[in-house]
Design a protein around this nucleic acid. Structure first.
Length: 111
DNA sequence: ACGCTGACTGGGT
DNA sequence: CACCCAGCCAGCG
């Protein structure tokens, strides 16, 4: 079994640590895991959406706080719906007070 | 093997 | 914040 965990698993693990009501960015996760490309994070979460998972992918937005991945949820709008259910205000496909809502995976090291 | 695409980002204008 | 450009890397035809 020399099956090493794909970087997808690492992304999922980090996403699972995002506190409810908070959001982070693809770049923040990519930087934390030293993936070198924020696109990898997007692809990883795409795989997550392809199957059943307990990964709160809706808490991951782009650097501007935009719900760039909303179109990949079913039904479309589920991303915004879930965020609002957690107390996150979303307007015009963007997270209100994004800067305050932002959570960095580096917070884990602060523990 | 090759090239394009994509849930991205940072820098410059 | 908006637009354009270049760098980035895995997946797919």
């Amino acid at each position: 079994m020399t099956e090493e965990p794909h970087y997808y698993e690492l992304v999922f693990e980090v996403a699972r640590h995002i506190p409810a009501g908070r959001v982070t960015t693809y770049g923040a996760i990519a930087n934390y895991l030293c993936l070198g490309s924020a696109r990898m994070v997007g692809w990883a979460l795409h795989q997550c959406a392809a199957g059943p998972s307990d990964v709160p992918a809706h808490r991951v937005v782009n650097r501007l706080g935009e719900l760039s991945g909303r179109h990949h949820f079913r039904p479309p709008g589920a991303m915004q719906e879930r965020l609002e259910a957690e107390g996150v205000t979303v307007a015009d496909d963007r997270v209100a007070d994004f800067r305050e809502r932002f959570w960095s995976p580096e917070e884990l090291d602060n523990e």
